[in-house]
Design a protein around this nucleic acid. Sequence first.
DNA 1: ATCATGCTTAGCCATGTCGCTAACTATCGC
DNA 2: GCGATAGTTAGCGACATGGCTAAGCATGAT
Lengths: 113, 113
Amino acid sequence: MAKHDPDLSLLFHALADPTRRSILTRLAETPARVTDLAGPTGLRLPTVMRHLSVLEEAGLITTSKDGRIRTCAIVPEALDPVRTWLDEQRAIWEARLDRLDAFVMKVMKESEE
Amino acid sequence: MAKHDPDLSLLFHALADPTRRSILTRLAETPARVTDLAGPTGLRLPTVMRHLSVLEEAGLITTSKDGRIRTCAIVPEALDPVRTWLDEQRAIWEARLDRLDAFVMKVMKESEE
DNA sequence: ATCATGCTTAGCCATGTCGCTAACTATCGC
DNA sequence: GCGATAGTTAGCGACATGGCTAAGCATGAT
């Protein structure tokens, strides 16, 4: 409801990049090291690191370091706000369609008279 | 499934801006003119025009011009790909949790033996 | 015909994004 | 300790984004 919703903006922005989405999908299978994630993308490590920090700041993944290895994992509930927003929108949009329906019905009924 | 999914990127990017989201929510109530949309935002017309064209290129709204007035309206089904993607992700994530469950069960069973 | 209205275009500025390389730190295996 | 491995930091360049002003164009009202 808040006018300023940094959370949603961060989430949507994080999801707006194909590389980040593919990293997410990869992580959905199983947690992985940074290098493992970099492999399929064909990108350099620092670039991947950057994507990971965007994902982490959006709350979509968590990372932890063990020795020299950083392991990344998804945060399943992180997508909830997105889902909620979508549901809200759909509710409003459908309400509007219903009203449009009602309007059409009314006009039709009136035209019959 | 496609590695390159410009559609989703456009959609997510369009949704990543609070101004654009508020325009969408406003349009969900009823179609509106460009000036009507600019009002609440406190932004100048050219700036709003820009946001509108981003929304339109993402397929989230349609606009049509009658005389000197451009009317904007939402495209309700435009959010479907987003919803689909979310559902896919959730499916994978849940499958992973199930597998984790199975793994835990297996370990527990083995430890009993 | 003239003027106000509603939108559009062009262009500027500050900042953000996405890729890179190069150099650095920290661990692990020997 | 030494070298290989994993990650990190710093900084660069090209381009995109989000805001603005100023000026233009088309249409509606008088």
